[in-house]
Computed example of a mutant assay.
Amino acid sequence: MPGAIGGVLDGYLRHRVARASAADGAFAADVALRVADFTRSGGKRTRGQFLWWAMRACGRGDGPVDAALATAAALELLQTCALVQDDVMDGSATRRGRRALHLDVAARYAPAVGERGAADLGAVAGVLAGDLALAWADDLAAAAQAGLPARVGTRLREVWSDLRTELVAGQYADVHGQVTRSRSPGRALRIARLKSAMYSVERPVHLGAVLAGAGPEEVAGLRRAGRCAGVAFQLRDDLDGVFGDPARTGKPCGEDVRAGKPTYLVAVAHARAAGRGDRVSSDVLERCLGDPDLDDGALAEVREVLVRTGARAAVQSRVERLSARGAEHLERARPTGPGAGRLADLLRAAAGLPPAGSCGAGSCDAGSYDAGSYDGGGTE
């Protein structure tokens, strides 16, 4: 599937870059070509795989293959939009192990125009690159929908429209929580669902089910399964952002802490420290979160607090429970198509768990749930 989606992207992006070059050479080199290169380097094409295998899980035949691949490719461009603009808003230095797009543009012009002018131009290029990726995604999705039966095309457009709105809402909620220093675990879960879970898992699964012509009950069950897996994915990503290896994650460790991101991991630590009257832990969090110059020693203090308060263990447990609940929802939806097993494995993989049946006795035990881990309500 990654190769098939990449093939659609290659042809489409060559055409769009050529059109951009005809409009303006500098724009094509600085923005359009970088959007194309960033999208081509997207890796596993996970969103497209969720779409494809959901369609195969719901359908009895192959389904509308061309429309599915084009919509999957459009999801990759939507991901490009989200990531490059997120890097500008967060001031991120790297993405996927390389220099962030806006900083790459700035580095090109710094010798000629100076650091300040280059930084301003880079930020503008990052925002416009996101806009261009979104426009290309919409055009590709619209072309995919045009060849479908009217009822399916209409449903697909509605889901695509909701997906885009949720993505923007999630990005705003994330920045809003960061600026207002939100510490609510429930709010943090909602941000995780909007910013990542919806467009990374739930909506791609939804799109695939619509392409297969699935009924309302089956669609609802698959969406619930995707929602659980998507939130688990984001919570695991939050853990990786503090405890992960940059060589594996492709981004510097501790960025979320330095930016003061309103993650569920941090919200649980705050709530637990406050509930226990643990002033030492609370003081570390207040002092360190949102400090862009935080050094490795202070980051180690934050990690210690996240472990000592039990926040890390609680989030790990929640990830496992969400994955289990997602499997239950998938079972109740009863998809009987040939892709049902592959879809189940993808949902488990989103939470960082191995495929079903690959664990030794007891090795995949999700563990007991601590009632103090602050349910956000409605996620499961």
Rank of each mutant, 00 (worst) to 15 (best):
A28L: 07
A209F: 07
A351L: 07
V307R: 12
K44D: 01
V152E: 02
E331L: 11
H176S: 09
A68W: 02
E331C: 11
A371L: 14
R116D: 13
R40E: 07
G310F: 04
W136H: 06
A70V: 09
A143M: 05
Y369G: 12
G130Y: 12
I5Q: 05
K44T: 02
L83C: 11
G372M: 07
A22I: 07
D162P: 08
E166G: 10
G377F: 03
A169T: 04
D245Y: 08
E380A: 15
F243M: 04
A4F: 03
L33Q: 14
R183P: 06
Y369D: 13
D293V: 13
V302S: 08
A67P: 03
R190M: 00
G186A: 09
A107P: 08
H15E: 13
L101M: 14
R236K: 12
G153M: 13
D245V: 09
A57E: 04
A274F: 08
L347V: 03
A26G: 14
V284M: 05
A232R: 00
G376S: 00
G254Y: 01
L235W: 00
H15C: 12
D10A: 15
F233D: 03
A212S: 02
A225D: 03
R14P: 08
P354L: 11
T165S: 12
L285F: 05
A28I: 04
A324D: 08
G42P: 03
G91H: 00
S92Q: 02
D37Q: 14
A22L: 14
P355A: 03
G11N: 03
T80Q: 04
G130T: 07
T154I: 10
R187K: 10
L75W: 07
S323P: 07
P185F: 02
